[in-house]
């Protein structure tokens, strides 16, 4: 089995770095069948998901990952990734804590986000 832990870790690093620098380019991580549930609001498909992410009402955002855990969930190389951390938006003083879970699926040699659930958990 591939090193799902290493994949998860690389993915998480890449995901939040991209999110913080230019979240429009997260589109490449999603596919048509991908689903994002952001604070309960669902978006389906790479285009809609990117729109949702780009349209979030802040300009600057910074994620800091506190914990990351991953488990293989299927024989075809699916990985479930759970992240908790903090984010800071725009000029706000307070960090917001979040929890995000990803279901990664393999597509040939690469992975994409099949399911993505984001929640702020406390402030």
């Amino acid at each position: 089995m591939a090193d799902f832990q290493g994949i998860a870790q690389q993915f998480v690093e890449f995901y939040y770095k991209t999110f913080d620098e230019n979240r429009a380019s997260l589109q490449s991580l999603y596919r048509e069948q991908s689903m994002l549930t952001f604070e309960s609001a669902p978006s389906q498909g790479a285009v809609a998901i990117t729109e949702k992410l780009v349209g979030l009402p802040f300009q600057k955002v910074q994620h800091k990952v506190n914990t990351l855990d991953a488990q293989p969930t299927s024989e075809d190389g699916g990985i479930m990734v759970m992240v908790t951390g903090q984010l800071l938006v725009d000029e706000e003083q307070n960090v917001m804590n979040f929890c995000q879970t990803f279901q990664l699926k393999r597509d040939g040699g690469s992975y994409f986000v099949f399911n993505d659930v984001f929640r702020l958990v406390y402030g």
Partner: peptide, 14 residues
């Protein structure tokens, strides 16, 4: 005012 909902609207869970 706890900071949580400053930027993001919170809806009921899905």
């Amino acid at each position: 005012s706890h900071g949580v909902k400053k930027a993001l609207p919170v809806r009921g869970p899905m």
